[in-house]
């Protein structure tokens, strides 16, 4: 498989704070790569470094074999994308915005603009000024702009923002088609796992500026579904926790009158029975809505990278 986007040892400091810490990964032609992480993890910062908004303090970005630092314009010509929200010139029509962007690339014909407008379903509204567009329409025009010059890498930052369910489905189909039929490398960031699940082939997980790991989506889902955390309310939380450890369950956290234990669904009645047998009063058991972050940490076993 051909790695179209290669990121090696990327680092970024904002002042003294290291916001991106030695991130390396690569995205292959023909795959949709998900970049998953909570808000503030460094997703957008990474994307902005790839797209030329932020300087690269250390590390390299190679696009289709071209080092971005050495051959900036040639490398950037192979990238298309949307960073955060797509912002256009509001006084100009969607079409004029695309024409302006097309002018900065080589070989984008007016016919190609029509083709892309049709692809994103904006052919009938393209003559209107951008300030009249809804957020969803802006997303569509932004996608059209990103695809205009047939990039080898498509980078989308939270692309489903502002889209209705229909729009999300359409976007998903477009992205899959781009990757699988036109063998573009698609790089999508999100903080929502279910969204990733439906469109990505592989997922990289980022937190606190560090890449925790990259896994095929199937393996990831299996692990997340296999481990759930239940909170047991009891007056003797310490005893409950040590009991759980002795029985081979993992204790996530404990407080004064509660303990969080990682269990599979069928283990719950067995664990409750164990507590009762040992005369530990159980006031309630509830499944915790697992935070993505803790799930990631849990999945990746505390951060050892599998690049």
């Amino acid at each position: 498989m051909e790695a179209v986007l290669q990121i090696q040892h990327l680092c970024k400091w904002f002042g003294k704070r290291k916001v991106i810490d030695d991130i390396s990964f690569s995205v292959n032609a023909g795959e949709v790569f998900g970049f998953l992480g909570p808000n503030g993890a460094g997703k957008t910062t990474t994307i902005k470094m790839i797209m030329g908004f932020l300087s690269i303090d250390r590390g390299t970005v190679v696009i289709d074999g071209l080092d971005r630092r050495l051959r900036y314009e040639a490398a950037m010509a192979k990238i298309g994308g949307i960073v955060e929200n797509p912002e256009m010139y509001k006084e100009l029509s969607g079409r004029v915005n695309l024409e302006m962007y097309a002018r900065l690339h080589d070989g984008v014909t007016p016919a190609r603009i029509d083709e892309v407008l049709e692809l994103v379903g904006m052919q009938n509204r393209a003559h209107e000024k951008v300030k009249k567009y809804s957020l969803g329409m802006k997303q569509r025009i932004g996608l059209a702009q990103a695809l205009l010059h047939r990039p080898r890498v498509l980078i989308l930052d939270e692309p489903t923002n502002g889209l209705d369910p229909m729009g999300i489905k359409e976007l998903r189909d477009i992205l899959k088609r781009m990757a699988h039929e036109e063998s573009i490398a698609v790089f999508v960031s999100s903080h929502m796992l279910p969204e990733m699940e439906q469109m990505c082939d592989r997922v990289g997980i980022i937190n606190n500026g560090r890449l925790l790991g990259v896994k095929p989506i199937g393996a990831l889902l299996e692990e997340v579904s296999g481990k759930e955390v239940y909170r047991v309310l009891t007056t003797s939380a310490g005893m409950a926790a040590s009991l759980a450890v002795r029985a081979g369950y993992s204790v996530q956290a404990e407080g004064g009158d509660w303990a969080d234990i990682a269990l599979q669904k069928e283990q719950v009645p067995l664990f409750v029975a164990l507590l009762v047998e040992n005369r530990i009063p159980v006031y309630g058991v509830s499944r915790l809505e697992q935070s993505l972050e803790s799930a990631f940490i849990q999945i990746t076993g505390g951060g050892n990278t599998i690049a």
Binding site: Y72, M76, G80, E87, Y89, K90, Y101, L104
Partner: peptide
Amino acid sequence: STGSIKSLIIAPVK
């Protein structure tokens, strides 16, 4: 401030 600078920065121009 409007963010339209983005479409200049993502373009392949120095």
